[in-house]
């Protein structure tokens, strides 16, 4: 794998736009997105629905092509999903292969690339990282929503990615499960140094997890504001959320979303 330390930013978007025509009418989804995401950064994206959050993530992950501007990952233009960047979807029940066991779901991206022993080792390590080592033989439908989402995260981690692109991964989970998974993702971030791009519509979640927050406005989606989160790590569900800085950031994001909506 070519390490490009001369590229300080792992993702770059320059003037990225995306539009398509719907029944003859041009529809602009993204407009003039300029963005640099640093290696190892936890970058969160918030915005009202319809501001193109998901589309932006799909463009970064190579699942959708921008119709204008340029996207690069590790300095290389992104046209297809690049090696080293993997997307985790919100709808885990559709994203998992219901006919495969947990371990075989996690192995999916490794098959044909590693021998059986190496695959098994990676699967075990990934499942351990998300606390599912006891559920390797279970099937997705036997697990709770939170556990299913963990399987999807483990499947992405098994590839040893440099960047994880997560599309509202905890949007469908209850508050308690959500808090546990947030801490798990933070732990993975601290342990592996993986870059995270994380979409959410939950302001507190964006602040709690992120190093930086992009607030989108739209449609068409644009970056309205970038907010730095100067909270120390490791973060803690009780202490971090009581810090004055946390409240200040939360207010800043809230104001930015309000202002973005008035545009």
């Amino acid at each position: 794998m070519a390490e490009r330390s001369d590229v300080p930013e792992i993702f770059r978007a320059d003037g990225v736009g995306l539009e398509f025509s719907l029944q003859g009418q041009p529809r602009r989804i993204l407009e003039d997105i300029n963005l640099g995401i640093k290696r190892g950064e936890f970058f969160t994206i918030v915005g009202a629905s319809g501001t193109g959050k998901t589309t932006l993530l799909r463009v970064l992950g190579g699942l959708q092509k921008a119709t204008g501007g340029a996207v690069t990952f590790r300095g290389q233009p992104v046209a297809e999903p690049p090696e080293g960047a993997v997307v985790v979807f919100q709808d885990y029940s559709h994203a998992l292969l219901q006919w495969r066991s947990v371990a075989r779901n996690v192995a999916l991206g490794l098959e044909g690339r590693l021998d059986a022993a190496a695959q098994a080792e990676r699967v075990r390590a990934s499942l351990r990282m998300v606390g599912l080592e006891k559920n390797a033989a279970d099937y997705p439908w036997q697990l709770s929503g939170g556990m299913q989402q963990r399987v999807q995260i483990a499947r992405a981690l098994a590839l040893g990615p440099e960047a994880m692109l997560m599309d509202e991964p905890f949007g469908a989970l209850d508050a308690m499960t959500k808090a546990t998974l947030q801490d798990e993702v933070l732990r993975v971030h601290a342990e592996t140094g993986t870059t995270f791009v994380f979409i959410t519509h939950d302001i507190e979640e964006a602040v709690y997890l992120g190093d930086r927050i992009a607030v989108l406005s739209g449609p068409p989606g644009r970056i309205h504001t970038l907010i730095e989160v100067p909270l120390p790590r490791p973060r803690n569900q009780i202490e971090t959320r009581q810090m004055p800085e946390f409240l200040r950031c939360r207010l800043a994001v809230y104001d930015a979303i309000q202002a973005a909506g008035r545009r």
Binding site: G61, A95, W99, G109, E111, L159
Partner: peptide, 24 residues
């Protein structure tokens, strides 16, 4: 969504058909 999964995990077209589409 399964097509998205196949792409983001960078499965080959052959694997996408035999491991994902046919079983699904």
């Amino acid at each position: 969504r399964l097509h998205d999964v196949a792409r983001t995990l960078r499965l080959t077209p052959a694997r996408t058909v035999t491991r994902l589409l046919i079983p699904a």
